[in-house]
């Protein structure tokens, strides 16, 4: 009996905490997404009319959201930005992971630490740093002008380019680390075996290393794509004022329009996108691992 009580004392605090502050909020968001905005505190209409015991919620917000070009653009834009940024991260990150795994073991840890160090410094400040670099009168443009390479500054800040740059910059380590973890774990003996069997280096890479690192790639893509989907800071600081992403829509609805039911709806749709991504990536990894 005391054993059971002891176990419950350990189990309950984290369980209750996560149910209250993670699961319950999502339920509240869903409920409010069915409600309508009103002026007042709280700024949404009640869902149930207790006097007549009637449910007042409807899916009007959802139909509005999916029928409105502005929001649809925001969603599609987010998916596009996140997907392209993920792909660029992969293109830069995979060779980096490969390179780190190929150096002497004693040098790997410092290289990994160097990779993670920026992650420990403020995300906001790292994004902000790019403004100095990319501005029309920023460091890169000044250098180009002074060297006489350009007559007029290149427009880099507040474009799609700067948003991609910012996201890739922020999330690159999240692509490298899982890929490195997987590559490092396989035996380099496999590569030697491939070489021994006459495979040229590039060929053995294509037929051995790349397929084996798929789980790492999947994890890396997940870790870049999902947060990029809901990214707010980068488009806000580096993107143009008309640049649409879900995170920004959500922010505007919450703080400027104070249309919380609509913000809640945007959140639920984003949540569905996130869950769908996670589940499908999990599927891909599972499918690959089963027949082996």
């Amino acid at each position: 009996m005391t054993r059971v009580l002891g176990c419950l004392a350990v189990l309950m605090p984290p369980y209750v905490w996560m149910v209250t502050f993670f699961a319950l909020p999502i339920i509240v968001v869903f409920a409010i997404s069915l409600s309508d905005a009103v002026v007042g505190i709280p700024p949404y209409a009640p869902l149930v009319d207790w006097s007549s015991a009637r449910f007042l919620g409807d899916v009007e917000n959802y139909t509005f959201l999916l029928g409105d070009a502005y929001y649809l653009d925001g969603f599609l834009g987010s998916i596009r930005i996140a997907a392209v940024a993920t792909f660029i991260c992969f293109l830069i990150g995979y060779p980096m992971a490969l390179a780190i795994s190929r150096v002497r073991p004693t040098r790997r840890l410092p290289l990994l630490l160097l990779l993670m160090l920026p992650f420990w410094t403020s995300f906001l400040i790292r994004t902000y740093a790019w403004i100095t670099l990319l501005n029309s009168n920023g460091i890169i443009n000044n250098a180009l002008l002074n060297l006489g390479l350009r007559e007029t500054p290149i427009l880099m800040l507040y474009t799609d380019f700067s948003v991609y740059l910012g996201i890739v910059y922020a999330y690159l380590p999240f692509m490298v680390l899982p890929i490195y973890a997987v590559i490092e774990r396989h035996d380099l003996g496999l590569l030697e075996a491939a070489a021994d069997l006459g495979a040229k280096p590039f060929r053995s890479f294509l037929s051995v290393t790349l397929p084996l690192s798929i789980p790492g790639i999947a994890a890396g893509c997940l870790l870049v794509f999902v947060p990029a989907l809901g990214e707010f800071v980068v488009p806000e600081l580096l993107g143009g004022s008309d640049f649409l992403m879900i995170g920004r829509l959500l922010w505007t609805e919450t703080f400027q329009n104070r249309d919380w039911p609509l913000a809640a709806t945007v959140t639920i749709v984003l949540l569905v996108l996130v869950v769908a991504t996670v589940v499908s990536v999990q599927r891909i990894v599972d499918m690959r691992e089963r027949p082996l």
């Binding site: 369980y15 996560m18 993670f22 809901g230 809640a264 996130v274 996670v278």
Partner: peptide, 23 residues
């Protein structure tokens, strides 16, 4: 339990922020 604990790892900040605000 496991899912509840680990889900915030793959949850965009805006979702966590807004849902807690509404809560």
């Amino acid at each position: 339990f496991n899912g509840l604990l680990l889900a915030p790892l793959v949850m965009p900040d805006v979702i966590i922020g807004l849902s807690l605000l509404l809560l």
